[in-house]
């Protein structure tokens, strides 16, 4: 491996994914001087070129017919760019698109793939990568040294974004559709900040007792600029849609701060949030398992404690 990175950057809902910028910063570090190629996918890709200063080339994938993301078509187009630029380490954020596109490319090149990596380090003659396995109950470290290509996706919120200098060459590519097309996109109601990208998450569980009571959580989330999450018990009760669920059969998140309110801390919930940098648990049961993995704990009634925190944060802002 020569470590000539290619980063697939993704525009979703009119915004460059933070995960793509994190991935690009990592790629620039790994490249240590060799050229870095960026491929921007999504609508109006030309708007985002300046976010990739320091890259040697930026390819824009133009979806002229507005077909939306199409796995086959994207794979075709990006693999020709991989060949053209002789890139060997292909990277992408571990987003919904990343989880779809990168495995296709890996299979096409019959090369190894490490999805959702949480540590990627360049060593003398290869790359060392760490991934959480068994729902974050363990980690696996792999050392790659002899494959012609290597595919890496990075867990969102784990790698820092840095800025680099240098104007890239910009190249345009047109995409064409085939037998698959996105008819429409319906934005989810309520949620404004994407859970997996949020720096702060306030989650509610069965302790909230009803859908209406989620308002308490949403108020705190609003003053903190946080996203709202939920345990499976809260989702299965119909208080919040599935897209809010954190855990083994929900989303895996790594925010700076995760505040669990009325959540007991079942192992399947921990699977989704235990890698958060700082965990606060608010629970009336002093023996709730969540306190074993929390950094800060409050034993108390969430209906009193959470509004008090909201008021305190609001006070601090005035």
């Amino acid at each position: 491996m020569n470590i000539i990175p290619l980063v697939i950057a993704e525009v979703r809902n009119g915004k460059m994914k933070k995960a793509s910028q994190e991935c690009f910063s990592l790629a620039m570090n790994l490249a240590s001087g060799s050229p870095v190629t960026v491929v921007i996918a999504g609508s109006e890709p030309e708007k985002y070129v300046n976010m990739f200063s320091g890259a040697s080339k930026v390819y824009l994938l133009n979806d002229k017919n507005k077909n939306g993301y199409n796995p086959k078509v994207y794979t075709e187009s990006i693999s020709s760019i991989i060949d053209e630029t002789k890139s060997d380490v292909i990277m992408m954020g571990s987003t919904v698109m990343g989880k779809d596109l990168l495995p296709r490319l890996a299979v096409r090149y019959r090369s190894p793939i490490m999805p959702d990596s949480i540590m990627v380090t360049k060593k003398d003659n290869g790359i060392s990568i760490k991934k959480a396995i068994y729902a974050s109950k363990a980690f696996e470290e792999y050392f790659y040294f002899e494959s012609e290509h290597l595919f890496i996706s990075t867990r969102v919120n784990v790698f820092p974004v840095k800025s680099f200098e240098g104007t890239p060459e910009v190249i345009s590519r047109d995409l064409a559709g085939d037998g698959y097309h996105v008819r429409e996109f319906s934005q989810s109601k309520g949620a404004t900040i994407e859970l997996t990208e949020a720096m702060i998450i306030i989650s509610g569980g069965r302790g909230l007792k009803s859908s209406e009571n989620f308002k308490i959580i949403e108020d705190l989330a609003q003053v903190m600029g946080a996203a709202v999450g939920a345990s499976r018990a809260a989702v299965d009760a119909g208080w919040k849609p599935q897209s809010y669920q954190v855990g083994q059969t929900g989303k895996v998140v790594s925010p700076q701060l995760y505040i669990a309110c009325g959540i007991s801390g079942a192992i399947q919930h921990l699977a989704g949030m235990s890698s958060s940098r700082c965990i606060v648990a608010i629970n009336k049961d002093p023996n709730a398992p969540i306190f074993k993995i929390a950094d800060y704990g409050v034993v108390g009634d969430l209906f009193q404690v959470v509004p008090a925190i909201t008021a305190e944060v609001r006070k601090g802002k005035e």
Partner: peptide
């Protein structure tokens, strides 16, 4: 070509347990 080799599996570092935040009123705790 698998292209690599397993270095090792590891467990997450043990957590110390939560630092409990106490107070007379919810406001004080907050």
């Amino acid at each position: 070509i698998s292209g690599g080799s397993l270095v090792e599996l590891s467990l997450p570092p043990p957590k110390k347990g939560a630092k409990m935040v106490e107070g007379q009123t919810p406001e004080e705790i907050a």
